[in-house]
Design a protein around this nucleic acid. Structure first.
Lengths: 335, 335
DNA sequence: CTGTTAGCGCATTCAA
DNA sequence: TTGAATGCGCTAACAG
């Protein structure tokens, strides 16, 4: 690669000093004559000069960059959030570095460390939950962080997440309204006790109780994606198989639909189904799929706002909180 | 944020010079006694020191980071490629910065400039096609770049993309084999004359001709996603409406399926459908969807290989080429 | 084996 | 208005 041209070469070409060029770059035009301004402009153009932001950052202690570590980039929830977050930060003059932890705490640890080494100004993390020490350390150092989607108990870190109890409740209410009584919930469990999963199950229990329905433990299933088919087999081998299934996320929903198809069970006649998270094909599936959606844009906006606030407020420890956003039910034909 | 500790403080704490600490950090342990090594280790631990990679990069002229600019992060093709690329680069000690150009050339321009300012070691771009001057400039400067998914004519830049002619041909062959004769193709056109779209249509024409079938211009449709429903309406208002539809990508496929559902057309009896790009629900849709897939992992691997080669070979201009990977047909029930 | 020195490219005083 | 000097944190000779 052609060796980089520096501010010094521009200065030489324009016959001024480096600092004058620097002033120009920072748009402080008052500090120079019109003619020198034009000479600098011309020099930059001729040399095709581009400031080295590495050097600038080193000096300024700020990179105008934030890192985003998603738990799993293959989830459409993640990509929707990412897209919105990126737009937000761009609008504020920040860049984002996206990393994919693949649900692995070690990867998450690596990313947190590398991003801090790269001096990002802040971090948005979908935490795996496997690096408590690191989370704690960032908090102690007052490093700007916000968690997304999952909370970590006992840590004063701003968190943006869904009201998961409510999400389960919306689904159960819909089932009950359609007169289903034997309702099952299935979630993935690859990851440790991740809060959305736990809360969705809690919400499920509470909602059933609120409707005076019995909670049967055998209707509550968690398994990683590869084993969901087995769980479904067990479920339908029960004396009283469920009449309705709540799929804890999009990944689970896919497995459930696959199972239904393979076993020629028709939705909703044989079994009703609701999924948490909207999927692209929901509206034209047979039957159209009832679904509980997350307000991804709002969540991204909130996270952006919280992080920028922390970045700008420097050391002042702002109060932290868990921000719960509300899901909504899109009633279609699967229940 | 707690003010950063530097190599100097570690040196002081360990009672050695900065350079010795630097040696330690770079794992050149031969250059120091066992005892100083341990003192340094202890000091780093105590101070919780982390090297500032910004400073290191400034000195070394290498950031061990590459940028990836995708055309549209909402396409599952993009996220699959991203995931694989990230794994590859991580395995080679590189980090990646992901950017989403949203199909907008100006955004792409901004990203290319900012990534170069951040001194990334190379770039993988799904080019919008709207910044020829920049592409050319990077090539002239011998800056490591590889294009993904789309080629730009007249530029000697390594490119990894699908054999799009073959992709269309596979689909047409399948249609013809099932005895469909009136075959339509629909693609999106938001983006300028993007090569995949053009090539898929070319492949469609060639394949029809190879089978001795007439090419009817009214069966060839391009529109941005929002207008595909209109195109379909026109298509089915024709005297001889198509018996089969090839959807040029996953986005188009969604629109086609939606249309079928809304107009109660049954697949494949009323109309057969094949999509280019695999979708999550293909295998259990009613009917299961026949699809042409891209070898995303292989494509990511090839791109990684090409870019790393360029990065490592410094100035030596390696020969560039367009690498075409082969699609494959997954025959299911929609044709 | 260890310490001294001199930059990397830029921004920021402070004088002139 | 302009320019010289200093330092951000780290690496890389080069001496000792």
């Amino acid at each position: 690669m052609a060796k980089n041209i520096t501010i010094a070469q521009v200065a030489e070409q324009a016959k001024v000093s480096k600092s004058t060029v620097s002033q120009y770059l920072n748009k402080r035009y008052e500090y120079m004559s019109e003619s020198t301004r034009q000479r600098i402009e011309a020099a930059i153009e001729e040399l095709n000069y581009h400031p080295n932001s590495i050097a600038r950052s080193l000096k300024q202690k700020s990179t105008y960059t934030v890192g985003v570590i998603v738990a799993n980039i293959l989830h459409s929830f993640s990509t929707q959030i990412l897209r919105a977050i990126e737009n937000n930060f761009n609008a504020n003059g920040f860049h984002i570095i996206i990393c994919n932890a693949d649900d692995e705490p070690e990867k998450e640890r690596n990313y947190i460390e590398m991003l801090q080494a790269k001096q990002v100004d802040g971090l948005i993390i979908f935490p795996t939950g496997g690096n408590l020490d690191l989370y704690e350390q960032m908090h102690k150092q007052n490093f700007p962080v916000v968690f997304m989607d999952r909370k970590i108990d006992g840590l004063e870190i701003n968190t943006v997440m869904l009201d998961n109890h409510r999400a389960a409740q919306l689904a159960i209410d819909a089932f009950v309204e359609s007169d289903y009584k034997r309702i099952s919930i299935i979630t993935t469990s690859i990851i440790r006790n991740t809060s959305p999963r736990v809360e969705r199950i809690e919400g499920y229990r509470q909602a059933l109780e609120a409707h005076g329905l019995p909670v049967r433990e055998e209707y509550i299933r968690t398994a990683d994606a590869a084993n969901i088919q087995n769980e479904l087999n067990e479920l339908f081998a029960l004396d009283a198989p469920p009449e309705a299934i709540l799929a804890g996320n999009d990944r689970v929903l896919l497995e459930v639909l696959k199972y239904m198809k393979e076993h020629q069970l028709v939705i909703p006649d044989d079994v009703a189904v609701i999924g948490i998270d909207e999927v692209a094909f929901a509206s034209f599936y047979t039957p159209p799929l009832t679904v509980v959606t997350q307000p991804t844009i709002d969540m991204a906006n909130k996270a952006t706002e919280l992080l920028l606030e922390q970045i700008k407020s420097e050391n002042k420890t702002a109060k932290t909180a868990i921000h719960r956003l509300q899901p909504s039910l899109i009633k279609r034909g699967s229940c």
